[in-house]
Design a protein around this nucleic acid. Structure first.
Lengths: 220, 220
DNA sequence: GCAAAAGTGTTAGAAATACACCCATGC
DNA sequence: GCATGGGTGTATTTCTAACACTTTTGC
């Protein structure tokens, strides 16, 4: 039991697990940004970006703000993940509402050169995370599980790419996220049977036969 | 903007959407318990059972307590649903962590005759809910959507039945929850291909050919 | 014996998978 | 023309749905 003190109030925080593709050693890797803590507890440890919920702020807005404070960008996808609130997850009682988000790779890079990379923020490979503060390791792994799950039955993965993309680019995103090879022709069939992705009249020219560009359909 | 007053604190509540099968006019119906409010706001309106999160209590424990206070029972299934926290969902700032639960029909009835039905609690057909306080209508509908969804790909529906049940009883649960007829032989095939349900050596005798009883497998 | 529910078998169609092959472009 | 990635076609398997049929019990 916690002895009631001057303040037994429960504080509400909002954090986000933000995924984006960033070029690594061998091809693109799925990565997420972490923030180095500047206070106790867990001073100097890596943690998920987040902050206190403002009393005048909706939950989604708080998640967007949190995300903007670290990346200066609006996410291409944002969804509430889960609320973590075990008594012992922090020295003081904190209930953390966690969101997960996807960022378009092209915009992340654009921001980096523009506003200048924020201090204390670094991107890490999801398969090679450093030790994390609080229960953030568990949270990050749960978010990753949810992403992989959702990618298995939706076209949400397109949120990691620019507005227009080739079929191969999209397939490579799915291969990176899922960690296995996908058959190009079957992947194409799936896409063509869906009404969430639509072909454009543009083509990407490169070394070989130009590839048709696709984009996400306008929401009905 | 909210003008900061003597307390701009954010309070954390935990509520539950509790489903159970109860016999109605034509067969069993999916129902949930609501509590009549005894305070403003929404005095006398129906609301989901819930209460304030205790600073020394885990979220799951708070959900169980909430559930026990209305039904005096432990759920056969309990899962966090979503956290609702819009600024305007209540006159004061309240973040509500919602759980959803399943109750075995046999135990609910046993309790009713034992402890005596709690005051101010009534069961309602999920398809015929009264006007609800706050945003509880939306919450109840979201929980129902999640239940129907999960029933579509899992054997969670067995949580609405006693320990042992016939295949037909289970199928009828699924038909009630999903609101459509299911083919008995295909339903059997699904069950037999699963390792989550195991046959027992017992049979239910009745008017006709005895039916084998099944039960949920022990968790691995 | 007969009605009713338990349980089995069979077939048709849809969807996932594997893989062979043709097409258009840069060099 | 040839290497390379873009794109098409097709056979195989697996899953799902529909439904005909047999078995076992109470009365």
């Amino acid at each position: 039991m916690i002895t009631p003190g001057s303040s037994d109030a429960i504080r509400v925080a909002v954090s986000a697990v933000i995924f984006s593709l960033r070029s690594g050693a061998n091809g693109d890797r799925l990565m997420l940004p972490l923030v180095r803590r500047t206070r106790d507890p867990y001073l100097d440890a890596w943690a998920l970006p987040g902050g206190w919920l403002d009393p005048a702020e909706d939950l989604d807005a708080a998640a967007s703000r949190t995300l903007a404070e670290t990346t200066a960008l609006t996410p291409s996808y944002l969804e509430q993940l889960y609320t973590f609130g075990d008594v012992d997850r922090s020295p003081t009682r904190v209930v953390s509402i966690i969101y997960w988000a996807l960022l378009r790779s092209d915009l992340v890079d654009a921001q980096r050169s523009a506003a200048g990379a924020p201090e204390n923020v670094e991107w890490f490979d999801v398969d090679d995370l450093p030790p994390l503060a609080f229960d953030h390791r568990r949270i990050a792994e749960y978010a990753l599980w949810r992403l992989r799950n959702k990618v298995g039955y939706s076209w949400i993965g397109a949120g990691l790419l620019p507005d227009e993309f080739t079929l191969t680019e999209l397939r490579e995103v799915y291969e990176t996220v899922l960690g296995r090879r996908l058959d190009p022709s079957n992947f194409r069939r799936l896409l063509e049977g869906s009404d969430e992705l639509v072909p454009t009249e543009s083509f990407r020219t490169g070394k070989h036969r130009p590839a048709r560009l696709f984009r996400l359909a306008e929401k009905a």
